[in-house]
Design a protein around this nucleic acid. Structure first.
Lengths: 106, 106
DNA sequence: TGGACATGTGACCTTTTGGTCACCTATCCT
DNA sequence: AGGATAGGTGACCAAAAGGTCACATGTCCA
C-alpha cells in the first residue's frame, strides 16, 4: 500500500475524521481524553488512532504513563497537492460562458 | 451515511481513484473501455463505478446499448472546501520563525 | 432474423474493517 | 507497599468490501 493510499483510507472513516477535528481544535490529548468524546470503548479508539499514526496523520509522544497525540497535517497537504488539487481547479471558461449566457437575458 | 462520507469512502480505494484519473483524462467512456485499462473483470469495475456514482463523482448517460461515464468533480470540491482546506492552510508564522532561526546561523 | 456485443443482477466467496472483551504491564501517588 | 490510573495485546465476532461467475436483457447490424 502506498503512503497516499494509507492517508485516503485513514480519512475514509468518520470517527477518524472526528478525531482529527478534535486534535485540530486542541493538540496533545491522551487516549482517555479522546475516548471521553466518543461513544466507543477505549479499544476502538486505540485502533483508530493506530490507523491515523500509520498514515502519519497523528504523532504520539509518551509522557510518563500517558500517551499524548499530536496532529500532523502534512500528509493531508500532500494528497491535496498530488491528487485533489487537480479536481478542484475552477473551470473558468465554463463560468465565462455562463456569464455571457446570463447577460443575454433581458 | 452522509454525502461527505460517501465521497471520502469512494476515494479510499486506489482502483476508484484510478478510474477518476482515467475519466479526468478523457470523459464519456464506456464500461468496456474502462475495463480494458484495469486488471479486473467487468463486474469488479461495475461495482467500483456504482460506488463512484452513489458518491456523485461519476454521472452516467445511456446511449443505445452503451453507458457513457462522465466525471463530476463537484463533490471533491465540496469536501475540499468543507474539510480538507482547513488542514492545508500554511502556518506562515512557523515558517517565519524557522527562517529567523536559520538566519542566525553563521 | 439471428449472432455478436454492451450491460445488468443475484448468488457466492474471501479478506478487511470496526468494535468488544479478558487480561496484562507500567506509572503515579498516598 | 499497594491501590488507582493509563495504556497495550491478542482473541474473537459481525458486518462490509472487493471480487468472480452463471445467467439474463437489450441493442446493433449483416
Amino acid at each position: 500500500m502506498t503512503d497516499d493510499d494509507r492517508v485516503f483510507k485513514a480519512l475514509a472513516d468518520p470517527t477518524r475524521r472526528f478525531l482529527l477535528d478534535l486534535l485540530f481544535a486542541r493538540d496533545g490529548r491522551t487516549l482517555t481524553e479522546l475516548e471521553s468524546e466518543l461513544d466507543m470503548t477505549r479499544f476502538g479508539v486505540m485502533k483508530h488512532l493506530r490507523v491515523l499514526e500509520e498514515a502519519g496523520l497523528v504523532v504520539p509522544r509518551k509522557s510518563g504513563r500517558e500517551k499524548l497525540h499530536f496532529l500532523n497535517p502534512v500528509p493531508i497537504r500532500l494528497i491535496h497537492d498530488r491528487w485533489i488539487d487537480k479536481y478542484t481547479e475552477r473551470h473558468v471558461s465554463a463560468l465565462v460562458t455562463l456569464k455571457a449566457d446570463l447577460e443575454k437575458e433581458p
